[in-house]
Design a protein around this nucleic acid. Structure first.
Lengths: 255, 255
DNA sequence: CGGCTTAATTTGGGATCCCAATATGAATTC
DNA sequence: GAATTCATATTGGGATCCCAAATTAAGCCG
């Protein structure tokens, strides 16, 4: 039992459901790709830690072929890297300066989308967003993971509706990269409540067609998130890296 | 001898790894990736045409392992796709509407970068750009491919200097996707001359610190390119697709 | 002759094997 | 004791093989 033994979380046994008519190419490689990515985002594969293909095969219970496919795509995207020639794979250590860049970019992308949203005359599809984020305080879901998911959806929806496909694709990549630290933002109830309020205000600005106000709000909103993250990250970062350094084996009996 | 026999061309070595320290282990898979991408951009693999892994192996003179690696990355990026379950690989047919989106996005990205550039006080690195694009009319290189390359470099440099790494990465992807049709823009001497003039004007605006003028110019510049492309593409598109439909075998003796 | 079933072939996903390059650690030397 | 050398284990890249699914072509029946 080692540090990555919990990577097997993926498929819970009987996934032999023969698809009747649904288009589901479901390859092992894609599965592995998704699971690895998830493991990275969940800090179950701490940055900096090294993994050989063999041990990853063992942990994920797949052969090398699909694993390598996933690994190479992940590497191409910059999430992992095999440093030297024949060393091993490692999760790219998260570079705080780079996250500043990501947030800067995100601000500009969203400003664009929100300005367009506010300039748009009708926006019927916003109804669902309004329903969720402007719900009475008593009916608001407060569970961290759920809110985080809805938050991602919220921002993505705007970019998708008022940007275009190219912008959305770029935004999705951006979100992917940020996700690993963004999740740390939805832990305290205070932050969650703030998120509800800020989202509600944004929707109001859009409804009023006030692009300038929308821009101001989205800038402030993302900035608040960024500041929060900046603080949390240092905490989590030290935890994760120190845990990785110790091999993460303090949970049970050693080998 | 079939339509893709000319894929064996050497690698032009254009791999841009963004952030990391330049490690270059030169794997076959990366080579194949670059060569396939190049072949796609050069219309040597017409969109819509189907290719089996086997024939690609033959054409590229590699085994399936590195080929599949490259193919899957290309697929992940959306350049190719294997439609049905076990059909074959095909180059994604270029969707004109999507290119409109790409250009829209590009405009916004560049506007951002150029505005920042104009707002920036000093910009010593612009010297090289000035030297090339504001050179006396007699000393301007006019060869299409070369100008296209320099043009790409021109826009990329600005984004790289005045944007940030995240923006640059996104811009690079954007450029990748646009390249296939953008190349068609640098064929007529008139367009090339126009490009020189517009680039020169942009650099002037930046030197004068006039962000508004820079924005107006870059918008017009990209729009002109877009319009030109829009026209050319229809021409080339019909050529490419009809050629692909006929198997592209009119060059020599039939089978 | 046209629509349907079925057999043969092709295709891509995955598993296994081999190998050169590299890292690791023990033995050796100064 | 510290640096160096060298043998060994490990690692990832690539090649080959197998297989289920899917396409295609042939065959059949109405």
């Amino acid at each position: 039992m080692n540090s990555i033994s919990n990577l097997v979380s993926g498929s819970p046994g009987g996934d032999r459901t023969d698809i009747p008519a649904g288009e589901r190419p479901r390859t092992l490689a894609k599965d592995v790709y998704a699971r690895l990515k998830q493991a990275i985002f969940d800090f179950r594969m701490p940055p900096g830690q090294r993994y050989s293909e063999q041990e990853l095969c063992g942990a994920l219970e797949v052969s090398r072929t699909p694993l390598r496919l996933a690994l190479h795509i992940l590497a191409h995207e910059g999430f992992v890297a095999n440093v030297g020639g024949h060393s091993a794979w490692m999760v790219r250590p998260l570079d705080l300066a780079y996250y500043e860049d990501l947030y800067d970019f995100r601000v500009e992308l969203e400003v664009l989308a929100w300005r367009r949203a506010a300039s748009h005359p009708s926006a019927p599809v916003l109804g669902e967003l309004v329903a969720f984020w402007q719900a009475p305080a008593g009916q608001r879901p407060l569970e961290g993971h759920h809110v985080a998911e809805q938050d991602e959806m919220f921002h993505r929806t705007i970019v998708g509706l008022f940007g275009n496909r190219a912008m959305l694709r770029s935004f999705d990549e951006l979100t992917d990269r940020i996700r690993i630290i963004r999740r740390l933002d939805f832990v305290s109830p205070k932050r969650i409540a703030t998120t509800y309020n800020e989202h509600a205000a944004l929707l109001d600005a859009v409804r009023d067609g006030d692009a300038d106000r929308a821009e101001r709000l989205i800038r402030a909103h993302i900035e608040a998130s960024r500041v929060e993250i900046r603080r949390l990250t240092f905490h989590h970062l030290s935890l994760a890296t120190s845990a990785a350094r110790q091999g993460f084996q303090g949970t049970g009996a050693g080998s």
